[in-house]
Each structure stands twice: as structure tokens, then as C-alpha cells.
């Protein structure tokens, strides 16, 4: 069986003013062909004006098994949110 081409993650900017967003992946032997495949696979209906492709192997991800330790500390820091502070109603523009 022949070996698969490397995997690339595809990001599309749908229009100016918005960030690139992950849409999926393609296999390609190099970056140039990855961009062409991404165009044919993910932008057949004017879904974007700009494409990024990134080798999937280059992405470092957090481990879902550690998500509690990783993301929970924020839950007990409610003072990071504006609604934590009681300001009387007659004070305006704050």
C-alpha cells in the first residue's frame, strides 16, 4: 500500500475583517499543492478570500484529559468579569 501524503490543516478567511477559521484538512505532498487542494475542497462556493495551510504535525494541542487543571482555575476568579462589581444605578456611563 502506498503511503499517504502528509496531512495539512486548512484555515479560511471568509471575508476581510474576519480571522482565518479552521475548516478541515487535506492531504498533499507539498505546501503549494496543499493550497490548491484546499481551494478545490473548501472554497467551491465563494467561502473565502484567503487560505492558510499548516502541516498538521506542527500543531501542538492541549490534552482533553487535562482540561480540568488547564481551564478550571478561571471559574473561581469571577472578579475578572465586570458584573462582579456593584455600582449604584445612578452612576452613569460605567
Amino acid at each position: 500500500m502506498s503511503k499517504d501524503w502528509p496531512l495539512w490543516e486548512v484555515f479560511v478567511r471568509s471575508r476581510g475583517g474576519l480571522s482565518h477559521r479552521h475548516v478541515g484538512s487535506v492531504h498533499a505532498p507539498d505546501a503549494e499543492i496543499a493550497v490548491r487542494h484546499a481551494r478545490d475542497t473548501y472554497t467551491r462556493r465563494m467561502e473565502g478570500i484567503s487560505l492558510w495551510v499548516v502541516p498538521s504535525a506542527a500543531i501542538v494541542a492541549s490534552d482533553p484529559a487535562d482540561d480540568a487543571a488547564m481551564f478550571d482555575p478561571a471559574a473561581d476568579k469571577v472578579y475578572r468579569h465586570p458584573t462582579f462589581y456593584n455600582i449604584p444605578d445612578h452612576i452613569k456611563h460605567i
Binding site: 499517504d4 496531512l7 478541515g24 484538512s25 487535506v26 492531504h27 478545490d40 475542497t41 467551491r44
Partner: peptide
Amino acid sequence: AKVQDEAGHGLYLYSAAETLGTSRG
């Protein structure tokens, strides 16, 4: 255009299946 879409659908789905650990090949 329709037949090209079908190829695209195949690719979206192969990509989704690959995330479960089976290669495209």
C-alpha cells in the same frame, strides 16, 4: 459541478474518519 461536489463530500468524510485513527490509504 455536482460530480465535483461529490468528490468534495468524499474528502470531508475521509478526513473525519481519519481522525479516528484509520489512514486514508
